[in-house]
């Protein structure tokens, strides 16, 4: 009663329109719809992916909290309404397509790492992300070593020397070190239909 037919939200996005906006073919968008349905119904079958469902699909647990999955979720949720609709899911995944240009991947990575969303990647943010990584892994690094890593990174990336990395510096930096964008490509997205015929 009075609902906006939440399940219909799945169908509001025209696959042909999404194909024109992304690196996916219509048949691949249809295949990804199967994955979307699975994710969006894993906790509550409401046709949208909640943060809990996003984490469950990614990490196999909805209880783990992760700074990184939180940021990924926020970036996929372009309407910022707390859920990921099908169109947002497809447009977000498209950045991770092997065919997406490096500049687009770099822009996404910049926004991912700009955790305070101030338009720069600042030293404290990078330190926070390193600490987040250490807390989720068995790696142990002393504070002194972390500071050395930060010094070296900012020496290389912060060409203007103002203590923060702006979008232009970031594009230059990853242009010199494209391996930093390795996790911005999901190899599975190439030839989805042949790799995942069950989708």
């Amino acid at each position: 009663m009075g609902c906006c037919c939440s399940k219909e939200r799945l169908h509001l996005q025209d696959p042909a329109l999404l194909a024109s906006q992304t690196y996916f073919k219509i048949s691949e968008i249809e295949a990804l719809h199967v994955l979307f349905k699975k994710l969006s119904s894993s906790v509550v079958d409401d046709g949208v992916i909640s943060k809990e469902e996003f984490q469950l699909g990614l990490l196999g647990s909805s209880k783990k909290r992760s700074l990184f999955t939180d940021r990924l979720f926020q970036l996929f949720d372009s309407k910022r309404d707390g859920v990921i609709e099908f169109g947002e899911f497809i447009r977000g995944l498209s950045v991770f397509h092997p065919a997406a240009p490096q500049a687009q991947k770099a822009d996404f990575a910049f926004r991912l790492y700009d955790i305070c969303q101030r338009g720069f990647i600042e030293r404290e943010e990078v330190k926070e992300m390193i600490c987040a990584l250490l807390s989720e892994s068995d790696l142990v690094l002393s504070n002194d070593i972390i500071e050395v890593v930060l010094d070296k990174t900012f020496e290389e990336a912060d060409s203007k020397g103002d203590g923060k990395i702006d979008p232009e510096e970031w594009q230059e930096f990853v242009g010199r070190k494209p391996s930093l964008l390795r996790n911005m490509t999901i190899p599975y997205l190439k030839d989805l239909n042949t790799q995942f015929p069950s989708f």
Partner: peptide
């Protein structure tokens, strides 16, 4: 681990090691 090594890992290489950033997880059951 050797403090005097000139090949210090880059902070973003380190961060990129996070499995929480690997969206392949969606495709790996």
């Amino acid at each position: 681990n050797s403090g005097s090594s000139p090949a210090i890992i880059n902070a973003f290489q380190l961060i990129g090691m996070s499995s929480c950033l690997d969206l392949s997880g969606f495709f790996e059951k």
